[in-house]
Amino acid sequence: MAITAQEVNKLRQMTGAGMMDCKKALTEAEGDFEKAIDILRKKGQKVSASRADRETKEGVVVTDISADGKTGVLISLTCETDFVAKNEEFGKLANSILSLAVKENADSVEAIQALPFEGITVGEKITEMTGKIGEKIEISHFEKLTGDQVVAYIHSNGKLGVLVSLVNSGGTNVEDAGKDVAMQIAAMNPVAVDKDGVDATTVEREIEVGKDQARQEGKPEEMLEKIALGKLNKFYKENTLLSQAFVKDNSKTIAQYLDSVSKGLTVSAFKRISIG
């Protein structure tokens, strides 16, 4: 049957697919729009499957903080190329998924993918977008953080995001301090808030590395443990947030900086997402 330009355009408006893809789908569906949409989605599924082994090292990180400032969410939507990552439609999809995840109080990537979205699921919408764009697209990360006050930071490249949960003593300038700390986390990538948060495997590895270094330097065997523990303390200072030197003022640690802003102000947790 003959498919008119108006019908092709209508399907294009409904799906966002290319003109020729819409015409082929409508022709195959004999003018049935619902069938044509399914055909386009199936095409997307095939494209998605064929690109399953591709790496998604580009994309955007988006964040949302609840009205009361006590809950933050970070999501990364990733793709294969910077060209797609900078596409307006891609950015809109990322923010739509974020809004839906927040509204429905989702707690995992899998839960987000199952949420209803424009008559289909989020997962199906991503597959549809994959078919339209021709690149692998996926929700790569999802993080949620709660606390007295949660502050978010997105780096200027849009590919790195941080959430910081502050233990708020009720002082002023707390949110600005939170931004400073979030930028510190973005730049310095600490492994934990403090030494108590460093997992046992990392501690054991650092001690063994410290012993081996001292041994290679010719230090006596009975001194290795003490030397290794000294190196471990240096590791804590350089790699745990509260002990790190504040990048804006190296004379203070992050713990000292926060305490100078408001007595007792500190960080209880943080999340960091980076693409690439």
Rank of each mutant, 00 (worst) to 15 (best):
Met1Val: 10
Ile3Lys: 03
Arg12His: 07
Gln13Asn: 15
Gly16Pro: 03
Ala17Gln: 02
Met20Gln: 08
Met20Tyr: 08
Asp21Asn: 15
Cys22Asn: 10
Glu30Ile: 11
Gly31Phe: 11
Phe33Gly: 03
Lys35His: 10
Gln45Trp: 09
Lys46Tyr: 08
Ser50Gly: 10
Asp53His: 12
Asp53Asn: 12
Glu55Ser: 14
Lys57Pro: 00
Lys57Val: 07
Val60Asp: 00
Val62Asp: 00
Asp64Phe: 07
Ile65Asp: 10
Ser66Glu: 11
Thr71Gly: 07
Thr71Lys: 14
Val73Gln: 00
Ile75Ala: 00
Glu80Pro: 06
Thr81Asn: 04
Val84Asn: 00
Glu89Phe: 08
Phe90Asn: 08
Phe90Val: 14
Gly91Trp: 10
Lys92Asn: 11
Leu93Gln: 12
Ile97Val: 15
Val102Arg: 13
Asp107Pro: 01
Asp107Ala: 13
Ile112Pro: 02
Gln113Asp: 08
Gln113Val: 04
Ala114Tyr: 04
Gly119Ala: 15
Thr121Asn: 10
Thr121Leu: 10
Glu124Ile: 12
Lys125Gln: 15
Ile126Phe: 04
Met129Tyr: 14
Met129Arg: 13
Gly131His: 07
Gly131Cys: 10
Glu135Cys: 10
Glu135Tyr: 11
Glu138Cys: 15
Ser140Cys: 01
His141Lys: 15
Leu145Gln: 06
Thr146Asn: 10
Gly147Lys: 02
Gln149Arg: 13
Val150Ser: 07
His155Gln: 09
Gly158Ala: 08
Gly161Pro: 06
Gly161Ala: 02
Leu163Gly: 02
Ser165Asp: 13
Val167Tyr: 06
Asn168Met: 06
Ser169Gln: 13
Ser169Tyr: 01
Ser169Leu: 09
Ser169Pro: 07
Gly170Asn: 07
Gly171Leu: 03
Glu175Lys: 15
Gly178Val: 12
Lys179Gly: 02
Asp180Trp: 03
Ala182Ile: 02
Met183Cys: 12
Ala186Asn: 03
Ala186Val: 04
Met188Ser: 12
Met188Ala: 11
Met188Val: 10
Asn189Phe: 01
Val191Lys: 06
Ala192Cys: 09
Ala192Asp: 00
Val193Ser: 05
Asp194Gly: 15
Asp199Phe: 09
Ala200Tyr: 00
Ala200Thr: 14
Thr201Cys: 01
Glu204Arg: 05
Ile207Gly: 08
Gly210Arg: 04
Lys211Gly: 09
Asp212Ile: 04
Ala214Pro: 03
Gln216Met: 13
Lys219Asp: 05
Pro220Arg: 06
Leu224Lys: 12
Leu232Cys: 07
Lys234Cys: 04
Asn239Glu: 08
Thr240Arg: 03
Leu241Thr: 01
Leu242Gln: 05
Lys248Trp: 05
Asp249Cys: 07
Ser251Ala: 13
Ser251Tyr: 00
Lys252Val: 01
Ile254His: 02
Gln256Ala: 14
Tyr257His: 14
Leu258Tyr: 11
Asp259Gln: 09
Ser260Asp: 14
Ser262Lys: 07
Lys263Phe: 13
Leu265Cys: 11
Thr266Arg: 13
Thr266Lys: 14
Ala269His: 07
Ala269Met: 06
Lys271Glu: 01
Lys271Thr: 00
Arg272Ala: 00
Ile275Pro: 02
Ile275Asp: 00
Ile275Tyr: 01
